[in-house]
Computed example of a mutant assay.
Amino acid sequence: MKLRKVTAVAATALVLSLAATACGSSDKNDSGSGSSGGGKIKVGIKFDQPGIGLKQPDGSFAGFDVDVATYVAGQLGYKPAQIEWVETKSADRENALARGDVKFIAASYSINDERKQKVDFAGPYLLAHQDLLVKKDSTIAKGTDLNGKKLCSVTGSTSAQNIHDTIAPKANLREYSGYSECIAGLQSGAVDAVTTDDSILAGFASQDKYKGQFKLAGLKLSNENYGIGVKKGDSATVTKINTALEKMVSSGAWQTAVTKNFGPAGYKNEPAPKIGNIVK
């Protein structure tokens, strides 16, 4: 009887040990160790912004935001093959996070007070400036020249509205679903100018099919602090992403990504911003 009692105690201890191990394994996977757990992470990016986030003909993705998101996901424990890229257009970014469609969004997502009411931001990781893209022979040289002109931006973007409200109240706004449509409209003459961040415009202007046709006006109409959007209240993920961004800058990987994606267009980037430093 005594032997049976000891055996029962040992069996109970083994069961408790296995249960504790299982719980520990689950916690590790939940903490974002994707490579060890074999899981996937869904990341929102743009699919139609050369130099920022572009889906290429072979199905791969390229751009500065893609490089930043890949680095961040790697620091969270996910290999590139474990990243599932999700297209997040400007008008749907907040909803995509709220629905849980993606873990985070790196999609030329400027931090502002209105958006901070709906989502949390890590970063910023790039300081861009609103500018104008016009035809090479255009006489538009300053913001007020847009009065009476057709100005294009995408649905959900604040760029065109900023100009209309503060600089050129008589500008005729045109909103398209994507920047590709805006650029095509500029090429055809359907619009006179396209406005968004200089980094995005430089990416389009450097494409082979548009080389020599357009120019940047060189205006710094606003400061655009690119942040990584995270579901409201997910402070743990924000902290992890901020740590990853700091490491990307200190390791030199950030500058490498800037040079690779913007260098061909002669884009003059600002230095890497400090985490939490929003330039107004």
Score class of each variant (00 low, 15 high):
7 T>N: 11
11 A>D: 03
13 A>F: 12
15 V>D: 07
15 V>G: 12
17 S>K: 03
18 L>V: 14
18 L>Y: 08
19 A>M: 12
20 A>H: 01
21 T>N: 04
22 A>I: 11
23 C>L: 13
24 G>R: 10
30 D>I: 08
32 G>N: 04
38 G>S: 05
42 K>V: 00
42 K>D: 05
51 G>F: 05
52 I>N: 15
59 G>R: 08
62 A>L: 10
65 D>E: 12
66 V>F: 10
70 T>K: 15
71 Y>T: 09
72 V>M: 06
74 G>W: 04
74 G>D: 07
77 G>I: 05
79 K>R: 14
85 W>A: 04
88 T>H: 06
93 R>I: 01
93 R>M: 13
105 I>F: 02
105 I>E: 00
109 Y>S: 13
112 N>F: 03
113 D>Y: 02
113 D>W: 03
114 E>A: 15
114 E>S: 14
117 Q>M: 10
117 Q>H: 01
118 K>S: 11
122 A>I: 03
122 A>D: 01
124 P>C: 04
125 Y>Q: 09
125 Y>A: 07
125 Y>E: 03
130 Q>N: 14
131 D>C: 02
133 L>P: 03
135 K>N: 15
137 D>G: 08
141 A>Y: 09
142 K>V: 00
143 G>W: 02
143 G>I: 00
149 K>W: 01
151 L>Q: 01
154 V>F: 02
155 T>E: 11
156 G>Y: 04
160 A>M: 08
161 Q>F: 03
165 D>S: 14
169 P>G: 10
170 K>P: 00
170 K>M: 09
174 R>K: 13
175 E>W: 11
176 Y>D: 13
185 G>T: 05
187 Q>R: 15
187 Q>E: 15
194 V>N: 04
194 V>F: 06
200 I>G: 08
200 I>R: 07
202 A>Y: 08
205 A>Y: 03
206 S>F: 03
206 S>A: 15
208 D>N: 15
210 Y>H: 12
218 G>S: 06
219 L>C: 07
219 L>M: 13
221 L>V: 02
224 E>Y: 01
224 E>C: 04
231 K>T: 10
231 K>I: 00
234 D>H: 08
237 T>W: 02
239 T>D: 13
240 K>R: 12
247 K>T: 10
247 K>Y: 00
251 S>E: 06
255 Q>W: 00
258 V>L: 10
259 T>P: 00
263 G>N: 09
269 N>I: 01
271 P>F: 07
272 A>T: 10
273 P>F: 06
274 K>C: 04
278 I>F: 11
279 V>I: 13
279 V>Y: 13
